[in-house]
Design a protein around this nucleic acid. Structure first.
Lengths: 242, 242
DNA sequence: CGGAATGTTGATATGCCTCAACTAAAGTGG
DNA sequence: CCACTTTAGTTGAGGCATATCAACATTCCG
C-alpha cells in the first residue's frame, strides 16, 4: 500500500469507520510527493487548487494576510491532516498555507477524490468529517483568542497541539518537536513577541511546560489543561490519547 | 412547494448549482416548524441532535460557554442558514445554539438528509459547501478578534452581517433589523460593554453607520468596508449584493 | 406605572504593546 | 574553521488602550 495512503487512512480512522472497499478507494488515489523548505508557501490567497494536500511529515500552517502585511495564523496541521480539503468545494482560497519548518506533502487530484465520493459515500463522509473537525478547531480558536487570558491562550494552544500529536502517534513521552518561532506564536494568539516570551517564561517557572529550541516539553499535563481550560471533546476523536 | 424547502433552496443556490432532481430531493424533506423566544437555547453543548435545523425567520447564534460562565458568541445565522449541519457527522455538539430575538426554525431529520446524499451527491456537496463557508466565517472571526483594532472588528462584523443579509434578500435599502444587545456584541468581539458602546458611538459620529434600537443603518458602506478591511470573498457567494 | 434589563458615560487602574538595548544562535563567506 | 552578518530570543522601562467600576439614563415589559 502507498505510504501516503496509509497515513491518510490512519488519520481518518481516528474518527471514522471505513470498509475494505472504502479503503481500496483511498489507496487508489495517486499521491504526488513534494518537499518543502521552512516557511515555504504552497498555497496562496486567491489560488484555485486542482489538487488536495495531505501532510506527510513536518508541520504546515494556514494564515490570513492583512492589508498592512501582518499575518494571522489560523491553524496548524501535522502528519495525516488535509489542510485544504475545503478547496474541493469552494474554489478560491481565502487564506494561504505554508510549511512550518521542513515538511513533506502529498498532492491528490480533486477529480479522483470527488469520483471516490460518488462510488463510496463513506469516503466522502470521512473527509467531510475531517473538514468539520477543522471548523471545530477554528471555533475553539475564536474563543481562545477572544475570551481567555494570555497564559490560558498559550496553554490551550500547546494542549491542543500536543493532544493531536499524541492522537496521531507523533509524540512519545512528554516531548514534541514544534519548529515554530515566538513571532509565529504571537501571530497565532494575537499577542506581542514580548508577551509571548514572558508568558512562556511563566509556564516554565511554574514547571508546567517548557518550550525551547523548537521542542515542547510537557512537565505537568494536568496543570496545563487546567490553565488552558482545555477540553478535548471539540476534537471529536474516538479515543483519548491522554 | 414547502416554504421551508424554498428558503433552503434559495440559500443553497447562492453558491451551488442544483438540478431539478436535486431540488426534488430537498423538497421531499419533512420540515417541522418551531417558534423560539428571544434568547432561547435550542441546542446545548453535549447534545447529540437527530435533526438538522434550518433558520426560517429571525436570527440564531452559536456560542461557547466558558468554565466561569462567560459566553463567547461564534457566529450568527439568518434565514436560510443551517447552523448545525455539522451535527450530521460529528455527533456531540461542542457548542450551544440560541435564538437572538424571536425566531422560527424548521427541523429536518438527519436520516432523510443523509439518504438524499446517497441518491443525489450534489445535494450533499451543496450542504458540505455550506459548512465550508461557515468554516471560512470562523477563520475570518479568528483574524477579526485577534488582529484588528476595536473599531475595525466592529465594522467588520456589521459589514459581514449586512452583506449576508443583502445576499439573502433580507435587507433592503441601508437598514437591517438585528436584535442583538451590546453585551452580546461584546461577547462576540471580545470587548467590554463600555468599549462596545464607545466604538459604536465613534462610528455613529463619523456618519459611517448607526446601530440603535436593534436596527443597523449603514450610512457610508465604502467607509465601513474600509475601516473593517472587509473583503467578501471569504463568503464565497456567486454574485455580490453590494 | 413600577421594576428590571439595557444602554450611557466618566474616573480609575492595569495589562499589554511599543520601543529599545542587549544576548544568543544560526547561517554565510573569506 | 572562524569572523561576520543576520535572525531569533530576552528583558526592562514607559505609555496607552481597554477593562473595570460606579452612577445614572433610558427603554422594555408586565
Amino acid at each position: 500500500m502507498d505510504p501516503s495512503a496509509q497515513i491518510l487512512l490512519r488519520k481518518l480512522k481516528e474518527h471514522s469507520r471505513l470498509s475494505a472497499a472504502d479503503i481500496a478507494e483511498i489507496n487508489a488515489f495517486s499521491y504526488q510527493l513534494r518537499h518543502l523548505q521552512a516557511g515555504e508557501d504552497f498555497i496562496r490567497q486567491g489560488d484555485v487548487p486542482k489538487v488536495a494536500v495531505l501532510v506527510v511529515s513536518g508541520m504546515v500552517a494556514r494564515y490570513h494576510m492583512l492589508l498592512n502585511g501582518q499575518r494571522q495564523y489560523l491553524s496548524f496541521h501535522m502528519t495525516g491532516d488535509l489542510p485544504d480539503a475545503q478547496a474541493m468545494f469552494i474554489e478560491e482560497m481565502d487564506h494561504a498555507v505554508c510549511a512550518i519548518g521542513l515538511a513533506t506533502i502529498a498532492s491528490i487530484p480533486h477529480k479522483e477524490i470527488v469520483k471516490a465520493f460518488d462510488r463510496k459515500p463513506p469516503v466522502g463522509f470521512a473527509i467531510w468529517r475531517e473538514t468539520l473537525i477543522d471548523a471545530a478547531i477554528f471555533r475553539e480558536a475564536i474563543t481562545n483568542n477572544s475570551a481567555r487570558s494570555m497564559e490560558a491562550r498559550m496553554a490551550h494552544l500547546f494542549c491542543e497541539l500536543f493532544y493531536r500529536a499524541r492522537a496521531s502517534g507523533l509524540a512519545r513521552d512528554n516531548t514534541f518537536h514544534l519548529p515554530i518561532s515566538l513571532t509565529q506564536l504571537g501571530e497565532t494568539l494575537g499577542m506581542s513577541i514580548a508577551t509571548v516570551n514572558r508568558t512562556l517564561n511563566g509556564l516554565r517557572t511554574s514547571r508546567t511546560m517548557d518550550f525551547r529550541n523548537s521542542t515542547l516539553t510537557v512537565q505537568n499535563w494536568r496543570k496545563l489543561v487546567q490553565i488552558g481550560e482545555f477540553n478535548p471533546r471539540y476534537l471529536h476523536l474516538k479515543k483519548a490519547p491522554l
